[in-house]
């Protein structure tokens, strides 16, 4: 699905590449988490996957980056829109502003794709149901809470039926209720399968709950890559400035005191931790 070979990217006027020789393959339908300290290149990866680097930010690049059959850096944003969806932090800025209700907001991208009205209506209804937005369909997208707005942003992208959904810290500006709302949706998507998802997220506990795989960035490179359970339990995350869930840290500390055998793998979620300690 995603094939990246030796991909480098430099923002305009920068000597240091923001992405430095990325090799990555993500099979179709995989839910892939991305972690790393601030400034490690996580957002740039999102921009590269969706074509904004280089098409929006300019700058220079080399290597290969393919999503499906699409050669991303050699395609235009117009071609990529709808095939690769990007959702980012600020929910307010993702509301188009040109539509007056949630229903019409979700339709906006489909209108730009030039779909027939019947098809637009069908997809909008389907998406409203999937993202639990039916009750809000006639509300103004500006009159919503952050979590609801972010769900509208996700719905607006999903309605376009992208092959790949890229989310760059979608919950970092939300309160716990909003965070939970958004993660519930992501959990649903992960469970449903079919959509390939790349999610950048600092909240490791949540990531552990539904990512199949986690890759770790540091200084523009991928430094760790593996199953979510293995990577999030890796002690190296502490040194990298990514941190670990307190479940993992507590388990490691207890293991050091020899209450629990070393052979038992460290937990990353509450459920795993419960099993670990019992």
């Amino acid at each position: 699905m995603i094939r990246i070979k030796d991909f480098c990217y430099w923002y305009p006027g920068q000597d240091q590449p923001a992405l430095d020789g990325i090799d990555l393959e993500i099979p179709e339908g995989q839910f892939c988490g991305v972690v790393g300290p601030n400034g490690a290149g996580k957002s740039t990866l999102c921009y590269a996957l969706s074509g904004f680097a280089p098409h929006f930010f300019h700058g220079t690049w080399e290597g290969e980056l393919q999503v499906g059959k699409r050669d991303v850096p050699r395609s235009t944003l117009g071609e990529l829109a709808g095939e690769i969806g990007l959702v980012f932090q600020n929910s307010f800025n993702q509301i188009s502003g040109a539509r007056f209700t949630v229903r019409e907001e979700i339709a906006f991208g489909l209108e730009n794709l030039g779909l027939k009205r019947k098809e637009i209506e069908r997809r909008v209804e389907e998406t409203l149901a999937l993202i639990d937005l039916e009750a809000l369909a006639e509300r103004s997208p500006f009159a919503l809470s952050g979590g609801q707005q972010q769900r509208v942003a996700i719905a607006s992208i999903l309605a376009m039926q992208p092959k790949l959904l890229v989310l760059d810290e979608p919950t970092s500006q939300l309160d716990p209720r909003g965070t939970q709302e958004v993660f519930k949706i992501l959990d649903k998507l992960a469970g449903r399968g079919g959509t390939t998802v790349v999610l950048v997220e600092h909240k490791l506990e949540w990531l552990a709950a539904f990512a199949d795989r986690v890759i770790t960035f540091s200084q523009g490179r991928i430094v760790l890559d593996g199953s979510a359970k293995k990577i999030l339990a890796d002690e190296k995350l502490l040194k990298l400035g990514v941190g670990q869930t307190q479940f993992t840290q507590a388990a490691a500390a207890v293991q050091k005191k020899k209450f629990i055998p070393r052979s038992r793998p460290l937990p990353v979620t509450l459920k795993q931790a419960q099993k670990f300690f019992e």
């Binding site: 716990p176 307190q246 479940f247 931790a273 419960q274 019992e278």
Partner: peptide
């Protein structure tokens, strides 16, 4: 409507 800290939830689960 806030999440309890991770360790509190763990202690409670145990």
């Amino acid at each position: 409507a806030v999440f309890p800290p991770q360790l509190v939830r763990l202690a409670q689960a145990l």
